[in-house]
Design a protein around this nucleic acid. Structure first.
Lengths: 339, 339
DNA sequence: ATGAAAGCGCTAACAA
DNA sequence: TTGTTAGCGCTTTCAT
């Protein structure tokens, strides 16, 4: 059975489709449609369980009430938590979220943007991958609201919500130094986005402030698309070749989780002489024995800021076109959770 | 600058929009459009970076190439992992995913279905909440493909992919009994869907097979929407009032994680005399000291089966309308991971 | 206070 | 081999 259309409603109510449309869009009052007609129409709508076709509406009005969310991997708790909160708030304003994972692949990211474009999403929330700048610029030139998060594109005048990554690793490293650690390994990923660079720089700066320098032997970059096994091999290698390491700072939670697995398998114990610290909190770290200190990103606030900016730009209306406001660049501070 | 339309392309190429449309849809060959025209048009398309408006296309063809995914909470790793894999496979077939979280609220679930309906999604993947049956029936009567997962609706003739929950807790409980445990607490949630019922029944059956019965004092139902603190209170209460418990079986991972937190705070040690087992694996359990045994659901396979069924129904084409195939009821087996 | 009709961008049946 | 055109369901301007 074909779903009902506005026309069916009009026919049954003996009014024109215009009238029905006005009623559907809450313009009945403004149009001074009689109470009796309104009630009759609404009765029929309810009775037939009629839902207006948003696709047709979108074609006509130009907006889809949909926001495109492009992240690295929706199954990463950091992203899915943010997705959840964004969804929540967007939903309350009548917006829906379409998501996609880039797997950190610039080509896929480009395709995704194109896909979203063809679907006419009203706004984009993007955790950028390297090389995406041009596409973002393109979106902006079309006055489509865009907010990037997680990773900054410092050269670009685009709305962004990021965490002070430099400071995050700085305080973490400083904490370790204050505890007397001197051989602090740094394990990161080989994706040289601004975010990761800054995490390294914070580490480096803290060492420098203490009169130390980065020791290349205990600095490890794990290729992003490594298999589980390869990742573990990198870590095993690090620990075996450098038994004198007294602390490890991981630049992302998934690496730290892998690290914990490796330490467990190799029987290396954590305690006074050997500590690890991770970036991004996770239940694993809280419940680990011993518990793991982390640099925690304020996930709620990140989501909050993102969706606020998006909704603000989306509802500009008269003054200036959408996406034409001043650029918002928000930097939030991470917290060090000592455990 | 307004985006280009098929008309712009046609004008610039000096052909009709039909021709452009055929070329866009890969029907150029069938329509025997000359090579030169094809090349000219494609050149212009590339040059202008033209992307066809999927909204218009959807309005015309009736399908949106979008699948609606309705889960309890996208930030739960179980759901986000499945979401990720579904996305992956759907993407390869040209489908996009729109997700929404129900928070286990029947009213919200109904609204979500309505929202998706208005957006004309081609198919639904739903982790059902209680009371959703009627809406699902409605979808099916409109020949829209639907697959439910995680929780079964045993009374309904609807495609489903579920895990044998009964067997999951049965083997877990049996394992504990074989280890000599006799006071095995069961901690679950007060959502009485088929899935949770079966988890309880499996526990009960294993006890019975050993000549034991369920002891209400060590059977706890935590209300679904409890705050963190309330949840913890329930657990603290359980442990305090029943110091002789020698094992706890948690029916979901988030409860088990809360449980670990409580045990840590109350200083109750795990070991030979006291064990816990969780449903659903999680990094926390693997890396915990001591490691926690779990009933693991085959996430990959679940996602695989879901998307296979959806895509199959979506591509039926001629023979019968969409969603008109025989119903697939898939039951997968959980694995007990002893740690 | 209500209706007629144009048109959003596209597909596909039909014409030429 | 290519073009003309109706129409998908809706919003909104202009008429009445």
């Amino acid at each position: 059975m074909k779903p009902f259309s506005i026309k069916d409603i009009a026919t049954r109510a003996n009014v024109s489709i215009t009238t029905v449309s006005f009623i559907l869009n809450g313009k009945a009052e403004k149009m001074r449609i009689s109470k009796s007609v309104i009630e009759r129409v609404q009765g029929i709508i309810k009775e037939l369980d009629f839902v207006p076709n948003q696709v047709a509406r979108s074609l006509r009005t130009g907006d889809t009430k949909t926001i495109g969310l492009i992240v690295e991997d929706i199954s990463n708790p950091f992203f899915s938590s943010i997705a959840r909160r964004i969804e929540d708030k967007a939903y309350k304003k009548g917006y829906k979220i379409s998501y996609s994972s880039t797997e950190n692949d610039p080509l896929k990211a480009k395709e995704l943007i194109e896909m979203f474009k063809s679907r006419q999403v009203d706004a984009y929330i993007i955790a950028p991958v390297p090389g995406i700048e041009e596409d973002i610029r393109q979106l902006m030139s079309e006055h489509i609201p865009v907010v990037i998060f997680d990773r900054n594109l410092p050269e670009m005048e685009v709305n962004s919500v990021v965490v002070d990554n430099f400071n995050g690793t700085y305080i973490a490293t400083k904490h370790l130094l204050d505890k007397g650690k001197r051989k602090i390994a740094f394990v990161t990923v080989d994706v040289h986005v601004d975010q990761m660079n800054n995490r390294f720089l914070g580490y480096e700066k803290a060492l420098k402030d203490k009169g130390l320098t980065v020791d290349k032997k205990i600095y490890v970059e794990v290729p992003f698309n490594s298999t589980d096994k390869d990742t573990c091999d990198y870590l095993v290698d690090l620990f075996e070749k450098n038994p004198d390491i007294d602390a490890v700072l991981f630049s992302t939670n998934y690496l730290a989780i892998k690290g914990l697995g490796v330490l467990r398998e190799t029987g290396r114990e954590m305690g006074k002489d050997f500590t690890i610290v991770s970036y991004d909190d996770h239940d694993v770290f809280r419940l680990h024995t011993p518990p793991i200190s982390v640099v925690d990103q304020p996930i709620e606030e990140i989501a909050e800021q993102i969706i606020d900016i998006v909704l603000r730009e989306l509802t500009i209306g008269d003054k200036g076109r959408k996406g034409d406001r001043e650029v918002s660049k928000v930097t939030l501070q991470p917290h060090f959770i000592e455990r």
